[in-house]
Nucleic acid binder design. Structure first.
Ligand SMILES: NC(=O)c1ccc[n+]([C@@H]2O[C@H](COP(=O)([O-])OP(=O)(O)OC[C@H]3O[C@@H](n4cnc5c(N)ncnc54)[C@H](O)[C@@H]3O)[C@@H](O)[C@H]2O)c1
Ligand SMILES: NC(=O)c1ccc[n+]([C@@H]2O[C@H](COP(=O)([O-])OP(=O)(O)OC[C@H]3O[C@@H](n4cnc5c(N)ncnc54)[C@H](O)[C@@H]3O)[C@@H](O)[C@H]2O)c1
Lengths: 206, 206
DNA sequence: GGGCTTTTGTGAAAGATTTCACAAATCTAG
DNA sequence: CTAGATTTGTGAAATCTTTCACAAAAGCCC
């Protein structure tokens, strides 16, 4: 498959959410202009983004909401569920485990790990926090595609290495460090302090 | 000030964090190459990013760590503290309020609001959750520059409007909706489901 | 001081992304 | 069936971002 820009993929994900809203409201078709204005972009951008993957619309009419939803799910790889391990049962980890939006989208947390004896054994959402010592045993018995790292920064790289050795293919990292992984593993780091700093920059330079 | 790309600002924030690590390790100077390799970018990129704001290095030597930290803090507007209101005292809101990384960086949560009577009156970090009914009174008495929206999506736009009317200049939004604000207000939306979907896309298309 | 080494700062080139603009397709109404 | 109104799909142009490559500056050593 031809190389697609990350910005395009992010917008496809946005379009999918908007289309689901249109669907709920009972819309049968939607134009690139309607999608664009709800999504804060331009109609040309919407059409160009979609055109990388095929031609899904009808000239003069727009796109069938139901069909475009189906196509976008397929393009984004959301036609299946992903098994997720949560590494860290702290404040962010517990918020993420209890978030229903993930399972709704096909991301199912199947195990949670921590080092803190005070947290091991507790249950959230019917899942018991396990000792990180049993990471290897557990993930070999019940493999996952995705690991979410929500531990302090200094533990993140070592845990990432262990996950990768266990066959994890993608990592969502909340620790403020640059993780190193082999080429075939995908990492996405979410740095919330950095988001606040872009706001600070914008407030300062205007 | 000349228009600076968002990607550049994000990297500046990254450089700042890396420089603080170098500083802790006792480094006096650092080269663009050293910063680049720790940050996963290129030395030319580092130098170009910095060059938009001035020339901070010494040829043949590199950058003084201490001075560059100072300059980046200034550029990013981190030479002051920002007052923050947390709108929503749910799972994500409570994790953010208790996060020390924000205050460390100069972002101080000074009030928390919720509608849920079960949450109003509880205290975190010495801060009491207030009824969202008193948002106007409270923010007029104690103004904030930044609001963090961590409520369900359907409440987010209305709360945003109220915050903007109260003089809030920047919004960090965790609800999965596109917020509409006047031009002079900055919004940054963090959509965690979308981050997982970019992983899903990457896993699917390889 | 002069030669050698290192590393910055920056125009210019290359590459990537967005916007433009319009032919082609499809629908609607008469 | 034709005319008119919409709206897509897409090359080409415009804009934005990254990379290249090298002169200039600064330290170091003899
Ligand atoms: N809380 C926030 O709002 C927030 C915001 C931005 C970034 N972060 C980052 O997210 C990460 C987690 O933050 P948090 O607030 O949830 O912290 P936390 O301290 O509440 O949770 C971290 C958890 O990781 C566990 N842990 C430590 N070492 C471990 C190991 N080797 N293996 C398994 N578990 C281990 C700890 O026992 C703890 O339960 C941190 O890196 C933090 O910088 C948090
Ligand atoms: N928890 C997560 O991991 C996660 C991940 C991604 C996105 N989000 C998004 O973040 C937002 C908050 O998520 P959460 O998990 O913390 O939900 P939550 O239900 O735990 O918390 C939401 C809080 O907002 C309060 N609230 C509702 N209406 C309000 C109003 N009008 N004014 C003030 N407060 C109001 C509720 O009482 C509740 O305490 C949601 O939009 C969610 O989609 C959460």
């Amino acid at each position: 498959m031809r190389k697609i820009a990350e910005s395009t993929v992010r917008r496809l994900s946005l379009y999918l959410r908007l289309l689901e809203e249109f669907e709920e409201q009972g819309a049968e078709t939607v134009s690139s202009e309607a999608l664009a204005s709800r999504g804060g972009t331009t109609s040309a951008q919407v059409r160009k983004d979609l055109s990388f993957f095929g031609s899904f619309g009808k000239r003069g009419l727009g796109y069938s909401v139901g069909e475009l939803v189906r196509r976008l799910r397929e393009i984004l790889g959301l036609g299946r569920t992903y098994r997720v391990a949560m590494i860290g049962a702290g404040k962010i980890g517990s918020a993420l485990v209890q978030y229903r939006g993930f399972r709704q989208r096909g991301f199912e947390v199947v195990s949670i790990f921590d080092v803190d004896p005070a947290k091991i054994g507790r249950s959230w959402n019917g899942l018991t926090v396990q000792s990180v010592v049993s990471l290897e045993g557990e993930l070999r018995a019940h493999p996952v595609e995705i690991a979410v790292i929500v531990t302090p920064a200094d533990a993140a790289q070592a845990l990432t290495g262990r996950c990768v050795a266990l066959g994890v293919k993608a990592i969502l990292n909340f620790a403020p460090v640059q993780l190193t992984v082999p080429d075939e593993v995908v990492v996405k780091t979410v740095n919330l302090a950095l988001e606040l700093e872009t706001l600070s920059y914008a407030l300062t330079n205007r």
